[in-house]
Design a protein around this nucleic acid. Sequence first.
DNA 1: TTGTACGCGTTATCAT
DNA 2: ATGATAACGCGTACAA
Lengths: 341, 341
Amino acid sequence: MPRTIQENRQPSQLDVARAAGVSAQTVSRVMSGQPNVRPATVRRVLAAVDELGYRVHAAAVSLASGRTRVLGVIAVSTARYSSGALSVGIETIAAAEGYTVTTALVADHASPDAFLDAFDRLERQGAEGVILLAPVTFLDNAIGARAERTPTVLMHRLTGGIGTDTVVDQAAIARMATEHLLSLGHRTVWHVSGDDYWVESRVRRQAWEQVLTEHGITPPPVIPADWTPESGYRAGRTIAAIPGATAVFVSSDEMAFGVIRALHESGRAVPEDVSIVSVDDIALAAYAAPALTTVRQPFEAVGKAAATAVIDMVEHREPRPFEAIHPELIVRASTAPPRSA
Amino acid sequence: MPRTIQENRQPSQLDVARAAGVSAQTVSRVMSGQPNVRPATVRRVLAAVDELGYRVHAAAVSLASGRTRVLGVIAVSTARYSSGALSVGIETIAAAEGYTVTTALVADHASPDAFLDAFDRLERQGAEGVILLAPVTFLDNAIGARAERTPTVLMHRLTGGIGTDTVVDQAAIARMATEHLLSLGHRTVWHVSGDDYWVESRVRRQAWEQVLTEHGITPPPVIPADWTPESGYRAGRTIAAIPGATAVFVSSDEMAFGVIRALHESGRAVPEDVSIVSVDDIALAAYAAPALTTVRQPFEAVGKAAATAVIDMVEHREPRPFEAIHPELIVRASTAPPRSA
DNA sequence: TTGTACGCGTTATCAT
DNA sequence: ATGATAACGCGTACAA
C-alpha cells in the first residue's frame, strides 16, 4: 500500500455523494449551479453538504478545470495613498465577478528582475490575469513575453504597447494644474516633481514644460523630490530662496504639505506670496493650512476599470471601448492671483 | 475517450522528465531541492526546465501535498493609513517564508456575516492561516469554530480569547496621551473618539476615562467621531464652543487635522489655547500646522509580528513568547502647558 | 541515486 | 436527470 489514507480529512465531494445517495458528478453539478438536476436532488445534496460541512476544494477544481479565478496584483510597497484606494477598486470588482486577488509586493526602487520574480510568483499561484500597479516603462521589453500568455494590465502606462491602459491621463493633470496657475496671472510656474522611478512623475514634468513652452515661457529648472513630505519640505526651502517664485505645481498632496511648511517657516505666505497646486486630493488635502487646490485622481474608479479590463481579457470578452477616467481640478485656498496682479 | 487531451498545454513535470531523460520523481526532487540527486542529473533537469519554460503547478502541488502555503488576510476596506503599513509587514514576512497572501475585503461597518463569508472565501482558496485586520470583539463567538481548524490571528484584539494577540497595547496609547497632557498642567483632558465599530476606539476611551479617574478627575463627555478628518472638524467645532477646554486627546492623526482646522477657524490657537495629542504618527503628522504631538504605532512591525505568529501556528512551531510592541510618544508642537499654568 | 505505482478532489466526456 | 470513468500535475511510499 503506497500511502496511508488519511482519516480525519475534510469531507470530499464523494462523501457528500454517498451521504446524499447520489454520484459525485451530481454533487459537482449542484455545487456549480448547473441545470438539469431535479429540485429534490438538489435539496438532498445541499442538506448533505450542510451536515458534513463540505466545502469545495479550490486546488482540485483548478486542477480539473484548468481555471483558478485568481487575479494577481503586483504593487510597490510604499505607504503612498494611492495604493490603498486602487486596491479597494480592484477587490470590489474581483469579488463581484467571483475572482480572488493575490498580491505580490516589490520593494520601492526595485530592479526589473524583482518585478519579473513577482510575476512568476503570481503565475505559479495560477493567476489568470495580472495588474501591475507600478512604474513600468523600463519593464516593457522584459514583461512582454509573460504578458503574451497572461493577460496583463499596466496601471502606470500611458499609451500603446502591451496591455490595456486604464490609467488617468497624467499629462492632463499637469496641464490642468499649470494652466490654472497661469490663468490666475502668474508669469511662470515652478515644479516640484515626484520620484522619477515612477512614470507619472516624468510624464507630468514633460506636460508642465510643454504648457509653459506653449505660453512662450522658458521652463525654470525642476526641483526634484521623491513623493515624501520630507522631500517636499526640502523643495520648499529651495523655492523660498527664489525671489521671483510665485506659483508652484507640486506633484503630490503629501509633498505639498512639506512645501507649505517650508515656505511658512521662511516667511512666505501661501497663497499670498506663493500659490500651490498639487495632485491626488487625499482626504487630508482639504485640511491643510491653507486647504489645498489640487487635481483629484479617482483612484478607486481606476482600480475598478483595471480589474474589469483584466477580467474581460481573461474571459475572452470583447474588450470594452476604453473609457477615459478624467481628473478634476479642485480649487481650494492654496492658489490666488499673484500680488502684483 | 473521456476527454480530449489538450495539445498546447503548459509543460508538466513529465515533459521535463522525458526531455532530461529521467523520471518525473527526479524532477520533483530537483524542483523541491531535495538532496540525493547527482549534480549532473540536477543540471540536466534544470536545463530541461529552462528550455521548456516549465513552472510548478501550484494547484497540483497543493492537491498532492495537502499544503498551499497561502495566507489569508481579511481587511476592512477603508482608506485609513494603517491598513497599508500593516500589509507591507505581512507581505514581507510571508514572502520571506515562502507564503503567498490572498486578501478578502469586507465593507466598513459590515455585519459579522460578511466577515464569515470572507473567512469562507479564504478557506476555499486553501488559506492555511488567516489574519483578521478588523474589529472583532463582536465576532468572537462566530469566528470561534473556524479559528479552531484554521490558525487565526486577530489584529485588533486585546486580551485572551481566540488567536494570538500581536496588537499594540491600545490602552497604553491612551494612557500615554492623556498623562502627557495632564503632566503639562492641564486640569482635564477632552477626548475625540474614533468609530466605535473598531475595538481600539472603545479601548482607548476606557483607558482615557480611567486615567482621569485615577487622577481624581471626572471624565467629561466623549466627543464622538469616525476617524475621518471631516468628523474631526465637526468635533473641533464642538470643542471650540467649550470655554474650559484646553487639552484634547484625539484618537487619530487624521482627525486631529480636522480638529485643528476647526479650532483655528474659531480663533482658538493650538497649542496656546488648546493642546492636542493624537495617535498613529502618519507621515504627514510632522507637517501639520502645528506639527502633531502623537503616539506612534509601529504598524509595519505589527504586521510582521502577526504574519510570524500565524506562520508559527501553521507550521506547528512553538509559538514564540509574545513580544510586546510598544507605542511611543512623539512630542512635537501641538502640546504645551495651559495658559494659566 | 533513481524509478514505479498510486492517490489527492474535482471536472469533462460519454453513456444511460 | 444521473452515473461511470478518465484525466488534471504533482508528492509520497516503497522498491530497486
